[in-house]
Design a protein around this nucleic acid. Structure first.
Lengths: 221, 221
DNA sequence: GCAAGCATGATTTTCGAAAATATCCGTTTG
DNA sequence: CAAACGGATATTTTCGAAAATCATGCTTGC
């Protein structure tokens, strides 16, 4: 029923890095990880190598692994390329998507809206984040290009690391109604208005980049 | 002076997969690899995990690794996304590149031309391929985006697997002067004519896709 | 005083065997 | 006869220890 230990290690490490359990730049020592996840070195090293290929961890020969650092420049690059990749994918999905895709978008937006409305404990921030990811993935699902979808996942993971501090601070971005942006984006998409949808998507991400940038300069570390 | 065994394994396996030493779909058994590369399982598994993250090998839990299969659809997708990624990167490089970048392009084109002129033994096909890769990389080097450059490398590796059979067959593509295409592309780039350069780049790749497609239907296996 | 050399301990990397799981093939059973 | 079962073999996956390398701090020599 369950997969291998290496797969569990990959999932757990990826989660803990993206969600900020391990801080950027922190060294990941084999002995510590072995104790934390209760497994030997072999599955851990396999997971770390996969994460290195995804640029979530850095590795130096004979000096082990560290969590990949965060930088304003990398974040801005990642957001800019997200706009490029996702604009292309969104136009393709609008062109190719059928009813299954359209109803998937509606469902994902609705599930996201439900969670946004629930303003209870901070624990649900992770559920909110999962649904946010699912919504953006649903928009592109019908694009027909495995490569675009993979690049989307890579860039989403890269930028999620930067968004977590904002989510945790619950800073309701003065004046920004993110859920309204999501609704408008979904509406334009379902109306098959590619130009408008892409414009809304780009605006959405540029505002996100601004918010992250502002926060990173406020709280450098 | 040398790195770890895992790094050697990664480089050797990547080379042997891209260059076609291992055929697509072939299972990669640990015992065989251990004998072939003269090392234990640990460094091999690390290399295979990295290659799995790059989609050059497939893995199924407890059933080991196989060389990722080739398909016409994946090739066409990869080429289409290369056009997207590299067009964006080329425009940025034209905008941002300085003298170092420009002379790098000239040097890479010249080195490629020298090798094209040498029509000697088939052994030099690999040198030709290395210089071809270097030329395309040089065009984009100044784009300023690590993410675009990484996607370029990923897609280049993916499409190189499809081009190898054509290179080996030395089929001089009836009527196609590839080196003239490279020269024209470099010329437009150095003249900072983004629109022309991007158009030439797209044409270059679309013709390549056609040639691969034609060959794949001739020689299905 | 201070840099270079050298033990010492910490950490990563690799190996070889053991454990876990899959695959094959002959047998049995309905 | 087909399908399910079971044992033997092949293969992957994981562990624990050994080997290799790095980091630290002390000593030595100038």
């Amino acid at each position: 029923m369950s997969g291998t230990l290496a797969e569990k290690a990959y999932g757990a490490l990826r989660h803990d890095i993206i969600r900020g359990t391990f801080s950027a730049g922190q060294p990941l020592r084999m002995a510590d990880l072995s104790a934390r996840y209760d497994m030997g070195f072999s599955p851990l090293r396999e997971a770390l190598n996969r994460l290195q290929a995804e640029r979530l961890v850095d590795a130096v020969a004979l000096r082990g692994f560290t969590v990949a650092p965060l930088s304003l420049a990398e974040m801005e690059d990642a957001i800019q390329q997200r706009i490029l990749i996702e604009s292309q994918a969104l136009r393709a999905a609008i062109r190719l998507g059928g009813d299954d895709w359209a109803s998937g978008v509606v469902a994902a937006l609705y599930a996201l809206t439900l969670q946004v409305a629930r303003q209870d404990g901070a624990a649900d921030i992770w559920e909110l984040e999962a649904r946010h990811h699912a919504f953006h993935r649903a928009l592109l699902a019908a694009c027909g290009s495995p490569w675009l979808l993979e690049f989307f996942e890579r860039l989403y993971a890269a930028t999620e690391r930067y968004r977590i501090p904002i989510l945790l601070a619950r800073s309701t971005d003065r004046g920004r109604d993110i859920q309204a942006e999501h609704s408008a984006l979904a509406e334009a998409t379902l109306a098959r208005d590619g130009d408008l949808a892409v414009a809304l998507l780009a605006g959405h991400y540029q505002r996100t980049a601004k918010a992250i940038s502002a926060r990173m300069q406020d709280v450098p570390a």
